[in-house]
Design a protein around this nucleic acid. Structure first.
Length: 268
DNA sequence: CTATTTGTTTATCC
DNA sequence: AGGATAAACAAATA
């Protein structure tokens, strides 16, 4: 589930423990979320360290403990973060629990195990945190920068291109559909066939959907307004807020995709 | 029992 | 070589 704004929402869930120290680390070391990470070192080294920073970039999160302990969290499809005020019973899917000296706990849970925990013990930020593409709301993320990518991925459906994290960090399935709906571009359009005019609309839409998503979901996860595609996209018989016409759902770019055929005509 | 899932990585084909 | 696409991953839910 978690895309740009949901990741920001979950990042904030851990803020109540900021400036507290780790009393004890409990984890399910054999679970898939620790693939590639040294979970034993993580548990040993974080104990006693102070929780100093909580950051995110696209769908990647980074929590710093002390000056040189970097905990990376990716939520995958079903990952969640929460803070519990008191030590509550650990649930089945709570794969990483940081008990804090104050008595609360930081919890990462993930039933489907598509998420990932990273850990580095280095004075400088590790590669997975230092080498990330410009964020969609940053100045470096320019129209030119996007258009060059559309030309490089000219043969792929635009829906698939928007999901590529190397250029559009944080954009996921629902955001991509929302972006294309607002820009009135059919999701199956080959990226290279999008007109100059539509590219402008696309760029604007990427920015707007990202800002709107952060405003609505990023802080307290309010229900998005009904004039977004969001509230209609999964319902059978869902209707386009703009045209009132029936929405269509199909697999495009390997993912379930929803669009409004009247509003987003396919021009090939 | 079958089909579905808002993500990423790996394999395979072109 | 690099791009496009499908499969795999795991488990809950309908």
């Amino acid at each position: 589930m978690p895309e740009l704004a949901e990741v920001e929402y979950y990042r904030k869930r851990w803020l109540p423990a900021l400036e507290q120290s780790v009393a004890r680390v409990c984890l399910h070391a054999d679970k898939r979320i620790f693939r590639g990470a040294d979970s034993a070192a993580l548990a040993r080294n974080l104990t006693g360290e102070c929780f100093e920073a909580a950051l995110c970039h696209g769908k990647q999160m980074c929590f710093r403990f002390g000056n040189q302990h970097w905990l990376g969290v990716h939520l995958g499809m079903t990952g969640k973060l929460r803070h519990t005020a008191n030590a509550v019973a650990v649930e089945k899917h709570d794969h990483l629990v940081l008990e804090m000296v104050g008595g609360g706990a930081l919890v990462f849970s993930d039933p489907r195990l598509f998420g990932r925990i990273l850990y580095a013990n280095t004075s400088e930020p590790p590669d997975w945190w230092a080498n990330l593409p410009p964020e969609v709301l940053s100045a470096e993320f320019s129209e030119d920068w996007v258009n060059r990518f559309l030309d490089r991925r000219a043969g792929a459906p635009i829906k698939a291109v928007l999901l590529m994290q190397e250029r559009f960090p944080g954009i996921g399935n629902w955001m991509a559909d929302e972006i294309l709906w607002r820009a009135r571009i059919h999701p199956a359009t080959r990226a290279g066939r999008i007109s100059k005019l539509k590219r402008r609309a696309l760029f604007k839409s990427i920015r707007e959907v990202s800002e709107d998503a952060l405003a609505v979901i990023g802080t307290d996860w309010k229900r998005p307004p009904d004039d977004w595609l969001f509230n209609h996209r999964w319902k059978d018989g869902g209707r386009c807020p703009r045209t009132g016409g029936l929405l269509k759902r199909e697999t495009i770019g390997g993912r379930t995709t929803c669009w409004s055929p009247l509003w987003q005509p396919l021009r090939v």
